[in-house]
Design a protein around this nucleic acid. Structure first.
Ligand SMILES: [Mn+2]
Ligand SMILES: [Mn+2]
Ligand SMILES: [Zn+2]
Ligand SMILES: [Zn+2]
Lengths: 149, 149
DNA sequence: TTACTGATTGATATCAGGTATCATTGAATG
DNA sequence: CATTCAATGATACCTGATATCAATCAGTAA
């Protein structure tokens, strides 16, 4: 009945290493969660993850998500309907172009929204320390699918 | 035991009129909710409102909030801690400068973030239809209060 | 290898914010 | 007034998440 610690995908291993570097232990439930996340290509909810991993306690699912978000490996995505999803984060700070039709999200990096914000806020003596931005619309493929009139 | 329909503040009356123009009835619970909101200067939660108006059913509180948001008279404010608050909205689309220290929020109107977004997204063939933006930082008075070194 | 110890886990309870149901009430209209 | 359907509120329920806490296990030291 001894569970074997199997090697996960390279991405999963990398995520686990980062957690270890931060002082968190390499546990079986954690491995399962991280591996499942590493395999996902789209944003997901905590519940979806839990359905996929019924052997992992719900609390542990949420604890792992929080850990990964705090460590910058996971980002939270606010859908237009107000639901909060999670998604692997490969880069630093960025935003999302969320397609309201197919649900896909593209990362929006290197835009100068930050500088813009800082400027416009500075004019009002407001010291910007952070922000939250989600962009909703239709992705290229969804446009192509229905535009051809 | 017949409740009297009292006249509310000018702002409350104006909000109610807008609701009536949209086909919603002028009811006693609605008046109470709208009046309470009109008196608030800061963002608040549904629960806070319910505590203030225990005679109004919880469901009605939420229904009224949704109505006012849909009608553009109330805006939802996403705090940095993830909590959702509500706040009177006097103008059209705008954003908030949220002070993480005192909790106040200033409206950010007339910034060109929208155009920026549309441009940067268009370059990626993404058709922007909406967005959500909250800006966090410190307001002028909170800076003044603690900066004097 | 084994012993130790605190981090981690999962069952459970609890919470916050919000929606669905539905019998009852009451605002608007004529 | 009488009618009628929008609105209400009690209740149950739901999603997403956290608090508790005894049991377990990963990492380290012996
Ligand atoms: Mn992201
Ligand atoms: Mn606002
Ligand atoms: Zn799409
Ligand atoms: Zn402030």
């Amino acid at each position: 009945m001894t569970m074997v610690r199997k090697r996960g995908s390279p991405l999963a291993e990398q995520l686990l290493e980062t957690l270890e570097d931060r002082g968190y232990r390499d546990t079986l439930p954690r491995r399962a969660v991280v591996q499942a996340i590493a395999e996902r290509e789209r944003h997901f909810t905590a519940e979806e993850l839990h359905e996929q991993l019924p052997s992992v306690g719900r609390a542990t699912i949420f604890r792992s998500l929080k850990l990964l978000v705090e460590s910058g490996m996971l980002c939270r995505v606010l859908l237009e309907d107000g639901n909060l999803h999670y998604q692997l984060s490969h880069r630093g700070h960025h935003h999302h172009l969320l397609c309201v039709q197919c649900g896909n999200s593209e990362d929006l990096v290197g835009c100068d929204i930050e500088d813009q914000l800082r400027q416009v806020a500075a004019a009002r003596r407001f010291q910007v320390s952070g922000h939250w931005l989600e962009v909703y619309g239709r992705c290229q493929s969804c446009q192509a699918l229905q535009q051809p009139a």
